[in-house]
């Protein structure tokens, strides 16, 4: 019993705590991907790069404000907007040109991924660059300490998720988005500006990823390759939760985040990734639409 309290309990506690923080951030990133799929029916492979751009802009803002915390505030306000514009630009001049054809958009967004990544490498450089957290404090638990800022990131991600939910359920834009998601043609007939909605959704997806990038950059660093891991995890989350289902995305993010924490702590992190991937395969075989997804043909 003593060894359980001394050794196992702190590990369980940490696994759940760390997993929850991961889950909140993951939900925020995956939500953008899920929205884009749900409304536009396209798979955006460059989604991770929007996350990376958020982090990189955050570094620039931090740098321009002479390494002050105002840089973080500036980035929080500006980065999602800039990335949103980049998303609108690529939607207007690339995705619209290929008429949102599923195969073509995959190839096109892979192209966008490489363009963004290589431009960042040229302009920002290959190294990882740190950004200081706006608020820094250590939360002491009986067995170990934990980053206070990380807990703050979880809270802020949670607030953003609530904001998106309100946007979708309580605003006209949200209504249009849901209408477009349900039936593009009927929505168009009823006067929903579907083309503008597509652009807005793509911008919102990119902006959310960028916002997550800004929030996360003080707990890791900005580097030009950081978009890959969240992209893969987002795909896992979105497939498990059900493509296009907001509720599914959030539940799956918690499922993946917390199980990743527990398996990593008690076994191996590689095993956690393997099991997550296996879970995706099982879902695709047993319930291809995901846990909460609609049936798409």
């Amino acid at each position: 019993m003593d060894t359980w309290i001394e050794e196992t309990l702190p590990m369980v506690f940490l696994a759940v705590l760390d997993g929850t923080v991961t889950a909140f951030v993951l939900a925020l990133i995956a939500l953008g991907l899920s929205l884009v799929f749900g409304v536009m029916r396209i798979v955006n492979v460059s989604h991770g790069e929007f996350f990376m751009l958020g982090a990189v802009f955050s570094w620039f803002a931090y740098h321009w404000t002479a390494d002050s915390v105002w840089g973080f505030v500036l980035a929080l306000l500006i980065a999602p907007v800039i990335v949103g514009f980049i998303a609108v630009f690529s939607e207007r001049f690339i995705l619209r040109k290929v008429e949102y054809n599923p195969e073509s958009t995959i190839v096109a967004t892979i192209g966008i991924l490489y363009i963004i990544q290589q431009l960042t490498l040229m302009g920002f450089g290959p190294e990882a660059r740190p950004v200081e957290a706006p608020i820094y404090f250590r939360v002491s638990f009986p067995w170990f300490g934990y980053s206070g800022y990380k807990l703050l990131v979880a809270v802020m991600s949670g607030l953003c998720l609530c904001g998106i939910w309100l946007l979708l359920k309580r605003t006209k834009l949200g209504l249009y988005m849901r209408a477009t998601q349900q039936d593009y043609e009927i929505a168009t007939t009823f006067g929903v500006p579907t083309k503008k909605i597509y652009a807005s959704v793509f911008a919102l997806g990119g902006g959310l990823a960028a916002l997550a990038g800004v929030l996360v950059v003080p707990i890791r660093q900005a580097d030009h390759l950081m978009g890959l891991e969240p992209l893969l995890l987002s795909f896992i989350v979105v497939i498990i939760g059900g493509l296009g289902s907001i509720r599914g995305t959030i539940i799956a993010a918690f499922l993946i985040g917390i199980s990743d924490g527990i398996i990593s702590v008690f076994y191996e992190p590689t095993l956690a990734k393997m099991l997550a991937t296996l879970f995706v395969v099982m879902i695709l075989i047993i319930k291809p639409s995901g846990l909460f997804g609609e049936n798409y043909q």
Binding site: P10, L14, D18, R220, M226, E229, V265
Partner: peptide, 9 residues
């Protein structure tokens, strides 16, 4: 990208 979980080991 996060290491907290390793230190507990």
């Amino acid at each position: 990208s996060s290491f907290t979980r390793y230190f507990v080991k």
